[in-house]
Design a protein around this nucleic acid. Sequence first.
DNA 1: TCCCAGGTCCTGA
DNA 2: TCAGGACATGGG
Length: 290
Amino acid sequence: MKIIEKDNMLIIEDIKDFNTTHIFDCGQCFRWNKEEDGSYTGVVSGKVINVSQLGTKVIFDNLTLDDYHIVKDYFDLDTDYEKIKEKVSTDDIMKKAIDFGCGIRILNQDEWETMISFMISANNRIPMIKKVIENLSCKFGNFITSYRGRDYYSFPTPEQLAEAPVDKIIECKAGFRAPRIKDAAERFLNERDTIYDLKNKSYQEGLDYLKTYSGIGDKVANCILLFSMKQFDTFPVDVWVRRVMQTLYVDKDTSDKEIRRFAEEKFGDFSGYAQQYLFYYARELNVGKD
DNA sequence: TCCCAGGTCCTGA
DNA sequence: TCAGGACATGGG
């Protein structure tokens, strides 16, 4: 892997297991938008970044070498995905799913943003989730900059959402989730340290803590643990994962809890990665629907 | 009009 | 512990 800085761009050559489409469209993040040229623009650590890819060359626009640590951490660039794919390739189904979603990386997202984003995901569609998050950012976040003719705002801080009236959060189309979002923001102000320390705690400890929030159940808690707290031994079960699992692995009437147990036993410490490959595979190919 | 979405909460067995 | 209905919102 070679890193070059040029004209406010960071260019990484010979990158392995990195595919922008698969990374941004596999449902783990909601703030990246595809540009007309096929690149993606999003907000990370309060910075607007554009990512484009040509084979094994990835270009991060609007970024300097001083900020390399931001993308290194966010895109998990130090992790060897060859090893992960090897561990997860336990059967022909997984081999197919990995082949299909090759280049997926599990991003290291901010805990606070991930908590609120997945609370919004409950009983919601991905385009709508993105819209609500965008509305919240425009209304309560800070203006960052204009990029390619579009205005970008930071994700609102806990303070900004704690101060927001519930009816203004409802105006962002958050629906019945609005009071839960406000409650979470108010709690976060006092429990910030506990939350940012969960990545150092056990999976079970994190799960139990997160589920004390109104609006965070098993599925959402597992997504938060996986996508922002480096807990990879978890297997969040949503409608798509339920479908693909019931179609390819277990009986039709298997409960979500049993599916999760089955998968966590099968994939162990790599359950989260397996789940992402399966989710993307199921959703893109409509596995189990109809 | 009805069904459904990266579910959760509440109620009643 | 578990099944079943309610819950905002918008697209198909």
